[in-house]
């Protein structure tokens, strides 16, 4: 059977792993491309040049 020390240590390690996974997941999201919104307000990474009437 596991003693109390082992259980607490295991919980700490699991907690650290969970926290690191969340941080990593957030970083992974930061890697992803910025999406465009429905009407092109200019926030999309695809918009590069101003649309002007000539």
């Amino acid at each position: 059977m596991f003693d109390l020390q082992t259980i607490i240590a295991a919980l700490l390690i699991i907690g650290a792993l969970a926290y690191a996974s969340v941080v990593l997941l957030r970083k992974t999201r930061a890697f992803s491309r910025k999406g465009a919104c429905a009407d092109d307000c200019g926030c999309s990474s695809k918009s590069k040049t101003p649309k002007t009437a000539h």
């Binding site: 092109d40 307000c41 200019g42 926030c43 918009s47 040049t49 101003p50 649309k51 002007t52």
Partner: peptide
């Protein structure tokens, strides 16, 4: 407040 068309200005 909005953006100019096509840009983030």
């Amino acid at each position: 407040v909005a953006n100019y068309p096509g840009v983030t200005v």
